[in-house]
Amino acid sequence: MLRGSKVGLRARHDDDIPVLQTELHDDVVTYSRSELRPWRPITPGSKDSRLVVDDNEQGHVSFSVVELDGGTLVGNATLWGIDLHNRSAHIGLGLRPSARGKGYGTDVVAVMCHYGFIVRGLQRLQIETLSDNAAMLRSAERNGFVREGVLRSSAWVMGEFLDDVVLGLLVQEWKRDPPGKADARP
Rank of each mutant, 00 (worst) to 15 (best):
L84T: 09
L122Y: 02
K181P: 00
Q58C: 05
W156N: 03
R12G: 00
R100L: 08
D69G: 08
V29T: 10
V28S: 06
S34P: 01
M112L: 15
H85K: 15
W174I: 10
C113I: 09
P178L: 13
E128R: 10
S88K: 15
V166N: 08
S64D: 07
L84I: 05
S88N: 14
T106Q: 07
T129W: 02
W174M: 09
L95G: 02
D132M: 12
R138I: 00
N133I: 03
A11Y: 08
G94I: 05
L84F: 12
T72M: 14
Y115S: 08
I42H: 02
G75R: 09
S153D: 08
T129Q: 12
V165E: 05
M136W: 01
N143I: 05
V7G: 00
V108M: 11
L170Q: 04
S5W: 10
I42V: 14
H60R: 11
L170R: 03
G4H: 01
M112Y: 05
T129N: 14
G45F: 15
S49I: 03
A182N: 01
A77V: 10
G81A: 06
Q126R: 13
S154K: 09
V53E: 13
R3Y: 06
G59L: 06
S34L: 13
E23H: 13
P18H: 02
P179V: 03
P44T: 00
L68T: 05
M158G: 05
G168L: 04
L125P: 00
S131E: 12
A89L: 10
D54I: 09
T43D: 12
V150R: 13
R124D: 13
L151A: 12
P178M: 10
H13R: 15
H25G: 02
F145N: 02
R100M: 12
V29P: 00
V65G: 03
A99N: 07
S98M: 14
V74F: 04
L122A: 06
R37I: 04
G4A: 06
G92S: 06
E67L: 13
G103N: 12
F63L: 07
P179G: 03
